Simulated scan of single mutants.
Amino acid sequence: MKLKRARRSRRGRIEIIPMIDVMFFLLATYLLASLSMQRLDALPIALPDGKTAPLPSAAPLTLSIDRQDHIEVGGHAVALADVGNAVRQQLHDDRKVIVAADDKATQGTVTRAMLAAQNAGARALLIVIRHEG
């Protein structure tokens, strides 16, 4: 004699709408987390226009000069007289220094800072420009 089951077994279903909601939440979380990890250690400057090849992925030391002639080496504010010491302390093995000078920065300050970096051991000075496009 066969007995009937009192309950039918139902196949499980995966609801797609809640899964999409969770995926959008994770996407927004990762997006906000990655934006908060951006390094903003340079002075706000307006770069001059020009065309050049892109920089390789390993970023050298950055020397920033804004329009009021404030100088930062590697994200730390320094006086013009201390640029050489700061560059010497923070210089990498490749001995390259990126010079990011504002378009309105005083030419004399930019030149003196570049000469101080060169005297401190910088082998190559790379000038940052805004890509025309």
Rank of each mutant, 00 (worst) to 15 (best):
V83H: 03
R8D: 07
N85M: 12
E15F: 13
A6G: 12
A120E: 05
N119M: 03
V97A: 09
L80W: 06
A113P: 11
L91R: 04
R67L: 07
K96R: 15
H70L: 06
I127V: 10
L126I: 13
R67N: 10
E132Y: 08
M23W: 06
R112S: 10
M19P: 00
K96L: 08
A122P: 08
V78K: 00
L32Y: 05
M19W: 10
T111S: 13
A6N: 11
L47R: 00
L61F: 01
H76W: 04
P54L: 01
D82L: 03
Q118S: 09
A59I: 15
G75W: 03
I129N: 07
T29M: 14
A42T: 12
P18D: 04
L55C: 04
Q118H: 07
D41I: 08
G133K: 08
V78E: 02
D94N: 15
D93T: 14
S34G: 02
G121W: 05
G74K: 05
Q90W: 01
G75K: 01
I127F: 14
R67F: 11
S9D: 13
Q107C: 04
H92W: 11
D103E: 13
I71M: 02
A42P: 00
L115Q: 09
A77P: 07
M37I: 04
L126R: 02
I16H: 09
E132S: 09
L43A: 00
G50T: 01
L3I: 08
P18G: 04
I98V: 13
H131E: 10
D21V: 15
Q68N: 12
A33F: 10
L43C: 00
G74Y: 09
S57R: 12
H70M: 12
A42D: 12
